[in-house]
Design a protein around this nucleic acid. Structure first.
Length: 428
RNA sequence: GUGGGAGUAGCUCAACUGGCAGAGCACCGGACUGUGGCUCCGGUUGUUGCGGGUUCGAUUCCCGUCUCCCACCCCA
């Protein structure tokens, strides 16, 4: 038997209803904040990710699905292509390619699959889905304003509340400008040098490859040492410090709760200033449901004009996982199950069903060979609200037996009144 | 990529140290020829993940492999 490949999966009903529910809520919220949809290709030139995400990151160095395309002639070497491991790079590429800066501030959102060749785990797949957004544009259009950061964070809080996820936690930090980080990295290395020998093996490795990661250490014995290390906050220049303070001010003004976490350092190279993460309990080690931040230099590093921006990506798989119990509840149930009864009744049932569907009634239909008992069983199994009997008696009388499957009440309804009657008594 | 755990019916799970593959739920049919949920009866539940080995005999023991789960790495 051929199965879905490792790390990929099929999404089946009723769970797909939940995905639609989440995406519809996202689109609603995006509309309120005036974000518009962008769709970029799911594969791009490999160079795009190498230059934006960072050559040295794990994503680029070992988690990408990369292949060499064929050239025009059989003998030609093709270009190196890669399935997108995230969507910010593609959006910024499109921003530059289509000169979107001519339109002022661009507020764009996307919903779609991304690909990383990681070891699968619960809520972590090789084809996974992200809902994300980017606010990017010339600084003169307000793209650099702390108001943008606060707006994006508020949007996210609104979105999670809308989904009924109340126990989220917003963690906030500023990682400063590239200059600040350079100074900080140096200071961190210096501070680690004399103490690293006393730390765990993982930290010793991190100290060399990526000192910022030392803050992720969970070994209790290392914590006292980590407490003594310098923090990025001490290295922020005046501009970054003020920017960060204003973000916090606005968040307080609009009532979005947050906690400062000066250990929060985002993994991708392009992040500057504001960095954030929303976490949610009960997701195990994979407790982050979304993350994002500001990337003021990304456009330029991809050959575009100066275009500060801020964005985020929501891990839709994990979000849905957190909502899983409500899958049944959001699935649209049939309003009526039409039960043809007896030879020749399929024709009349089809006519009635067609008319009802034109009136936006959700209709499921049986077959004239089904015994009435079976039709009723099937109807109640799928939680249809009504069952409509289409038999010879009804056709003769011009009125049809309509039974409410929740109350058991049954009435005879003239054919002409059926659409009206069912329309005003819809499910959900 | 590293370490550990697990794969048996559509689902959740049993099968003492190797001895005829089971239960509940779900599904289909009947009791009930035009009325569901309750009850009773009957039925399929199946390449025990896949491949090899040991054995008279393997769901069980051994090797390989695939997938899922947990942790690490990293990240959404």
């Amino acid at each position: 038997m051929i199965k879905a490949v490792r790390g990929t999966r099929d999404l089946l009903p009723p769970e797909t209803a939940l995905w639609n529910f989440v995406e519809a809520a996202a689109r609603d919220v995006f509309r309120a904040y005036n974000f518009q949809e962008i769709r970029t290709p799911i594969f791009e030139e490999t160079q795009l990710f190498a230059r934006s995400v960072g050559e040295e990151t794990d994503i680029v160095s070992k988690e990408m699905y990369t292949w060499e395309d064929r050239g025009r002639a059989q003998s030609d070497k093709g270009q190196s292509l890669t399935l997108r491991p995230e969507n910010t790079a593609g959006v910024v590429r499109a921003y530059i390619e289509h000169k979107l800066w001519e339109r002022g501030l661009s507020k764009l959102f996307y919903i779609g699959p991304q690909f990383r060749r990681e070891r699968p785990q619960k809520g972590r797949y090789r084809q996974f889905y992200q809902i994300g957004a980017e606010a990017i544009g010339p600084a003169t259009a307000g793209s650099e304003s702390p108001a943008r950061d606060a707006e994006v964070l508020e949007l996210l809080a609104t979105f999670l509340d809308r989904l009924g996820i109340n126990d989220w936690n917003l963690e906030l930090n500023s990682v400063g400008c590239p200059k600040d980080r350079e100074g900080y990295n140096e200071a961190l290395r210096k501070a680690l040098e004399p103490v690293v020998g006393k730390m765990c093996a993982d930290c010793q490795r991190r100290a060399v490859t990526n000192p910022l990661r030392v803050f992720d250490c969970k070994v209790p014995e290392d914590q006292p040492i980590i407490e003594t290390l310098p923090r990025i906050g001490q290295f922020l220049d005046e501009g970054c410090r003020q920017h960060f303070e204003q973000v916090q001010d606005i968040l307080k003004a609009v009532g979005v709760p947050f906690v400062l976490n000066d250990r929060l350092v985002r993994g991708l190279d392009y992040y500057t200033r504001t960095a954030f993460e929303f976490t949610h309990g009960a997701l195990g080690a994979q407790n982050a449901i979304l993350g994002g931040g500001r990337y003021d230099g990304l456009s330029e590093s991809l050959g575009g004009p100066s275009a500060p921006g801020i964005g985020f990506a929501i891990g839709e798989d994990r979000l849905v996982l957190a909502l899983k119990e409500s899958a049944e509840a959001v699935m649209r149930k049939p309003d009526v199950y039409v039960a043809p009864l007896g030879a020749g009744m399929n024709r009349e049932a089809a006519r009635i069903a067609r008319e009802l569907r034109r009136h936006d009634v959700v209709v499921e239909m049986g077959d004239e060979t089904f015994r009435l008992k079976k039709s009723f069983e099937t109807a109640s199994k799928m939680s249809a609200k009504f069952a409509l009997i289409v038999g010879e008696n009804e056709v003769k009388a011009g009125a049809f037996a309509l039974k409410n499957l929740e109350t058991g009440e049954q009435v005879s309804v003239p054919r002409g009144e059926l659409p009206q009657k069912l329309q005003s008594n819809r499910n959900s």
